[in-house]
Write a protein that binds this DNA or RNA. Structure first.
Length: 918
DNA sequence: GATCCGACATTTA
DNA sequence: TAAATGTCGGATC
């Protein structure tokens, strides 16, 4: 069961009348326990309770109390020896009136009326093995709201096709933003409770919906007109009860699209949702999906989850604020100093989307400030944290609008929580007309002018329109004289060979002035450069979520030397973790978080996912590979830096797909015409090596071209290749190859065998896959090959040292290994090998092959399954590592960290003593 | 001329 | 439907 399903089940349970006998079992069932589990508990077979309740070992001990004795029963549960013995996570007691529970691990308690317990279902999610607790409940509602808004949006576009045009798109977006504001306002008391927005529309508009647009338009007009002018403006009586909102929200074009009956009923339906529960953290992202063609299908695929946002914000500056809060204790002066520091902090998200990072940062800071005010006995004090210190840049106009709306709502919610409903309401309307979210291209804008350095620049400029103000209207003075700026966000990623022409041009504008050879960098790297440039001018730090490849392979020696030369360091980092949010479909990507700050001798903090949770380490330095080691850069090399054999890239078909055939097709072709046999060879890529299951290819040497073309089955395939290559007129290589359609672009073969190294392979194996492949088989471009070379080369590839090296300095596909000859093999530092060393290593490689042979026909995939790797094979690898590691340091390495340290050290030594060009 | 990497792509359990 | 695990193209240096 997922969280949404659990919420449904719990709500259903809460609606039913309370049955003391049944309740414990029904509760467990709602959290996904199987019928058999419950049966065994019911029968008493597995029920360990010693206080007359129900105890499920390792999970929960719950009991139904006598009326009025809930607290007492909970105490008994807590004191029960069985509770401790059975390692219970939760205790729970209820009498059908009150409901109390405690999470024993954290000590968190829950007390509510029985009727409301379903609202707290997330408290118990660990029971179902779900631990990403905080955001779930809200998100279920946010997603529901987003889906309904999406339906309304689509329906309105159906009825008003012109509103979907480029010219009117912004009107449509404005309209949706206004609606969202109204829904929120009517549920939170911003509108007078006697005059709800939704039911006014329902009452005043005809059932056939013919005048729905006019009714809404009139309400909008009221909200755009000061109270005293309502009469003069001729606002209809039924609309006069609505307040003056404006702040730009209802300024400008007040057109309303026409509503069909279906659209009207969607509208009323959305209004009936409980919008007080909407969580501006996430709802912005959901809402933006409503209007975004790209996002609509995925519904929020790219929004950053709250836990991940906190992985950025906490180490960036929130942890420090909390630490200072702790240090200040109850000292009023220290608390006031912290408060005034916070009032000057700017948070700047140059890829803000609908403002999630800004909203979370704002809410977290308000929480800290509220604690300060509480300790200083100033609970009702207005906040000192200006909303305008939370700046953003966003490319698309709708999210930019939503970002501001989300911040406004966040401010209102914080005022409600920390200062009370009355004060919150009193100061809310009319909305401030400033616009502090810039709609524009972050890589093209001057961040210093969007988020100007402290204390400089002109006076306040108000945007005449709340939304999407032109750039020159965004120079709003910061109220942060002497303050810090924290840059954060989750900018878009795009690899160099997937970037659009526009994106390339964006990057060029950033990189051309500062470096050459930037063409292999990911799009997100542009944000790091601009952030580094910004921090050089201003107090603060920056941290982004980014694709992990910016800290891997070829990108490291391009991007990070520049950042470090700009006197920045990696102040903290979170190593690779799989992207996840609660959207139905997640982007398939693995990300890192990297925080940069001005260089200093302070320790850096390295976060790594571990089974127990997130492991945190203080280290002296974090390098561009996110390793806790010196700043080292592995440059791709065209020749090995060590005395090892040359490794070739495999044979690239280059639109020669028709030359690659299955084994079945190959035997059919040969059966059809025996002359073909001579031209067919086994063809090994990654999967073929790993699974010992080659495909076949047509392999024709230049001097055999005519002979092969005379065979009809081959000729047909050559023509197909020719056509494919001809279809790429802009590709000079393809054009050249049109003349030789009988062959791959590359044509390298071995005379007796080659050592094959798969290009992509699973990260779960304890050693890299490799094998000896005999001629006449050939390597595909998914497989690297050392042709007819001594076998001790394979001993190196099969070693744990190489596994560590490749895993660190080559790129990865998500977490998969992605082997590279230039980055991984040619750079692999190997001490000078004596003849004796080579003989020993050759023996080790032979032993590995023999150990595998003993399990014939098991494949590499079978043999290297980490769970079931055979003992003899593991021992052969151990001996191989023993021999090789003794060559390095005269003993075995203690662990992979030590291996990497030594390799980095040796690499540095070898490349500086004997400089390598390339 | 050679190759790196994928806000992935496809297969498998 | 989630988990496992590697295709294939094509821009870049």
């Amino acid at each position: 069961m997922n969280a949404v399903e659990i919420e449904e089940a719990v709500s259903k349970l809460a609606e039913q009348p309370f049955e003391p006998q049944e309740f414990p079992f029904a509760f467990l069932e709602a959290f996904g326990n199987k019928a058999t589990t419950i049966k065994r508990l019911r029968s008493g077979a597995s029920n360990k309770s010693d206080v007359g309740g129900v105890l499920q070992a390792n999970n929960i001990h719950l009991a139904v109390a006598k009326l009025g004795a809930v607290t007492q029963t909970l105490g008994a549960l807590k004191a029960s020896p069985q509770t401790a013995k059975a390692k219970v996570k939760f205790i729970l007691a209820t009498d059908g009136d009150l409901f109390e529970a405690e999470h024993l691990d954290s000590g968190e308690t829950l007390a509510c009326e029985f009727d409301n317990f379903a609202e707290h279902f997330d408290f118990f999610l660990p029971l179902a093995g779900i631990s990403y607790v905080n955001e779930l409940r809200e998100t279920a509602i946010d997603r529901g709201a987003a889906r309904r808004l999406n339906r309304l949006y689509v329906e309105l576009l159906k009825d008003n096709p012109d509103w979907g045009s480029e010219a009117r798109r912004r009107d449509m977006n404005h309209f949706m933003a206004r609606l969202i504001f109204c829904f929120y306002a009517e549920d939170t008391g911003i509108f007078h409770p006697n005059h709800p927005f939704t039911s006014t529309i329902e009452k005043m508009s005809d059932r056939d919906s013919s005048n729905t647009d006019e009714v809404i338009g009139e309400l909008f007009r009221a909200m755009n007109t000061r109270k005293i002018d309502h009469e003069a403006a001729g606002i209809r009586n039924w609309a006069r009860a609505f307040p003056y909102v404006n702040g730009g929200l209802f300024g400008g074009n007040l057109d309303v699209p026409r509503f069909s009956r279906i659209a009207r009923s969607y509208l009323l339906h959305i209004g009936s949702l409980d919008w007080t529960k909407i969580n501006p953290d996430i709802f912005g992202s959901m809402i933006q999906a409503v209007a975004d063609d790209e996002e609509r299908g995925a519904l929020g695929m790219h929004y950053t989850s709250v836990p991940n946002i906190l992985k950025v914000l906490n180490p960036l500056f929130l942890d420090d604020l909390r630490e200072k809060l702790g240090d200040a204790g109850d000292n009023p002066r220290k608390l006031a100093i912290l408060r005034s520091r916070m009032a000057k902090i700017r948070v700047f998200d140059p890829a803000c989307g609908s403002g999630n990072f800004l909203v979370i940062a704002y809410k977290q800071m308000r929480d800290i400030e509220a604690e300060i005010n509480r300790r200083r006995s100033e609970a009702e004090r207005a906040t000192d944290i200006p909303l305008t210190n939370f700046r953003g840049i966003e490319l698309r106009d709708f999210p930019a609008e939503i970002a501001r709306l989300a911040l406004i709502i966040a401010e209102f919610q914080c005022d409600q929580i920390y200062r009370g409903q009355q004060l919150a309401l009193a100061e809310f309307l009319p909305l401030n007309a400033e616009n502090w979210i810039t709609c524009g291209n972050a890589l093209r804008l001057d961040w210093l002018s969007v988020c100007e350095p402290t204390g400089k620049g002109g006076g306040k400029i108000y945007a005449d329109d709340l939304f999407g103000a032109p750039l020159d209207q965004t120079k709003i003075h910061f109220e942060n004289e002497g303050g810090e700026t924290y840059i954060c966000g989750n900018p878009p990623y795009s690899g160099y060979n997937k970037q659009t022409a526009e994106q390339k041009a964006d990057l060029e504008s950033v990189f051309a002035p500062v470096m050459k050879r930037w063409g292999n960098l990911d799009y997100v790297a542009g944000w790091f450069i601009k952030a580094a440039q910004f921090i050089q001018q201003s107090d603060g730090a920056a941290a982004f979520v980014a694709t992990n490849t910016i800290c891997q392979g070829g990108q490291v020696p391009i991007l990070w030397p520049w950042i470090f030369a700009a006197r920045q360091k990696i102040a903290f980092a979170h190593t690779s973790f799989k992207w996840a949010n609660l959207a139905a479909k997640n982007a398939g990507i693995t990300v890192v978080i990297v925080g940069i700050a001005r260089g200093s001798n302070d320790p850096a903090t390295l976060y790594e996912e571990a089974i127990e949770g997130i492991e945190v380490r203080q280290v002296t330095n974090i390098n561009g590979y996110l390793a806790p080691s010196a700043n080292i850069f592995i440059q791709a090399a065209t020749q090995p830096i060590s005395s090892i054999s040359k490794m070739n890239f495999g044979n690239h078909p280059y639109y020669g797909a028709a030359l690659i055939i299955s084994r079945y097709d190959a035997s059919e072709m040969v059966a059809n015409d025996n002359r073909i046999a001579e031209f067919v060879r086994p063809y090994y890529g990654s999967a073929e090596v790993i699974n010992a299951n080659p495909r076949m290819c047509i392999w024709v040497r230049d001097d055999q071209a005519d002979q092969a073309a005379a065979i009809p089955d081959l000729k047909r395939r050559f023509l197909s290749v020719q056509a494919d290559r001809r279809s790429k007129p802009s590709d000079s290589t393809a054009t050249t190859l049109v003349k030789s359609p009988y062959r791959f672009r590359d044509q390298v073969e071995s005379s007796s065998y080659f050592i094959a190294v798969p290009q992509t392979s699973s990260e779960n194996r304890p050693y890299l896959p490799c094998n000896v492949i005999r001629a006449p088989a050939v390597a595909s471009f998914k497989c690297f090959a050392i042709h007819d070379a001594p076998l001790w080369n394979m001993a190196l590839i099969a070693s744990r040292l190489h596994w560590v090296w490749i895993g660190t300095v080559c790129a990865r596909l998500e977490m998969r290994f992605s082997y590279s000859n230039t980055l991984g093999w040619n750079t692999f530092p190997v001490p000078t090998l004596t003849e004796k060393n080579k003989i020993d290593l050759t023996r080790c490689a032979e032993d590995i092959l023999l150990a595998r042979e003993a399990h014939y026909p098991a494949t590499i995939a079978d043999l290297y399954d980490p769970e079931t790797i055979p003992d003899n094979l593991r021992e052969a690898h151990e001996r191989n590592d023993e021999v090789l590691e003794r060559i390095y340091i005269g003993r075995r390495f203690k662990n992979d960290t030590e291996r990497l340290e030594k390799l980095f050290e040796l690499y540095t030594k070898m490349t500086t003593e004997r400089p390598h060009s390339g």
